[in-house]
Simulated scan of single mutants.
Amino acid sequence: MFAFDLRTIYLITSLAFFAISGGLVVTTLSTPRALKGGRTLAVSYVFSGLGYALIVVRGLVSAVIGIVVSNLLLTLSVVLLYRALCRLLSLKPDYRLSLGAIGVVLAAAVAYGLYDSQYDLRVAWMSLALGVQILQVAWTLIYRDPFRRVSSQSFTGVVFTVYGLMLLGRAVFGFAHLLPESSLLQPSPHTFTLTALTLIGNLMLPFSFLLISNESHFYKLQKLADTDTLTGLINRGVLLECLREEILKAKKLARPFSLCVVDVDQFKEVNDQFGHPAGDEVLALVAGRLQALVRQSDSAGRYGGDEFLLLLPHSTQEQAYGLADRLREHFGREPFRVGGRSHSLTLSIGVATLHEGDTMDMLLNRADQAMYKAKRTRDQVVAQPAEILN
């Protein structure tokens, strides 16, 4: 009779990994939009499949192959998994933990597998190394670049966190010599459960990987639709929607809100003298500086032509004026290099602060009028009081 033991689970796991790897290769080659990191993930599953296959034949092959090579392959599979996720999420991988884990696994496999057969310590060190690697993957999914995180990343990250913590728990039991006796044919309940959960988690991973890929692609398309292609800032439509929402929040929470209309003074001269490509380059450079100089809570967007809007939540008129004046001074003393030449550009900025009874159009009108007033002499900041136009 066919016994459903640990060797059977490892055999099923190995075959499942090979099948998943084949499926990932087919998916990667057949999708019009390439699955970033898909091939690396496929190789990761090949390594996992080979690692578990060598565990299945442990006892039929040399200890070097059955213990050292099998565990090294499983460790390398997690390194490749981490690399695949970093490629998918466009993050720079940090391999310091991976290199440390490979060293620990090799040392433990040789020390406690070949020379001094101590099952508890070998399992403890290998579980520690793999657990730290798995938690690094979980951290990458949940905490690396949270502003670009999609919801499926959090779910997958939680799965890996649970798996990593279980491995660390197994390491603690191993170091305390509390692991129950276990073998491939007669596994302990703990070993059987951990192996089954490993299989389930790894079977879920490719689907999560595809889900993250699709959700990230949708996010990029959405961001592209909301972005002004020339400057990289949010476009006029999104900007006005954000302004409407910020006004509602400010009124509801009784907190200050200010708005700046920014105009580039010498833009027409640059366009006329050097052509539209130079003008486009100037707009992109101005947008980059504005984005870098405003606070993280503020929003900068292109309003139209050479005009930009700055949305400043939690800002009184004095605070908004101070920020606008610092921007004006920065632009005045830092020339731009366009087409190999240095250009001095100044800003005319109009500031308006939200008052009780204001509508979005009234606030925009006041800021716009203040900007035109500043434009008369250029390189100025003008704050428009509410009573002038209300």
Rank of each mutant, 00 (worst) to 15 (best):
S213T: 05
A171S: 14
P187S: 05
L184C: 09
F192R: 00
S188K: 02
M204F: 15
F173I: 04
L210I: 14
A176V: 09
R170V: 05
G174S: 07
P180Q: 08
L210C: 08
P180M: 05
S213L: 04
N214F: 07
P189G: 06
G201L: 05
L178M: 11
F173C: 06
T193A: 15
P189W: 08
P189Q: 05
F209W: 05
F207R: 10
L199R: 01
T198K: 01
F209A: 01
A176G: 07
L197C: 12
P180C: 03
P206I: 02
T191M: 11
T191A: 12
H190K: 07
T191K: 00
T198I: 04
L184A: 08
L179A: 01
N214L: 12
A176H: 09
Q186A: 15
L205P: 06
F207E: 04
L178T: 07
P206H: 02
L185P: 06
T198Y: 14
E181L: 14
F175L: 03
L197I: 14
R170Q: 07
H177Q: 14
T195E: 05
L205F: 15
F192D: 01
S188Q: 04
T193C: 13
R170A: 02
S183N: 08
I200V: 15
F175Q: 01
A171K: 00
T191P: 04
S188C: 08
T191S: 13
M204T: 12
F209S: 00
P187C: 02
T198H: 11
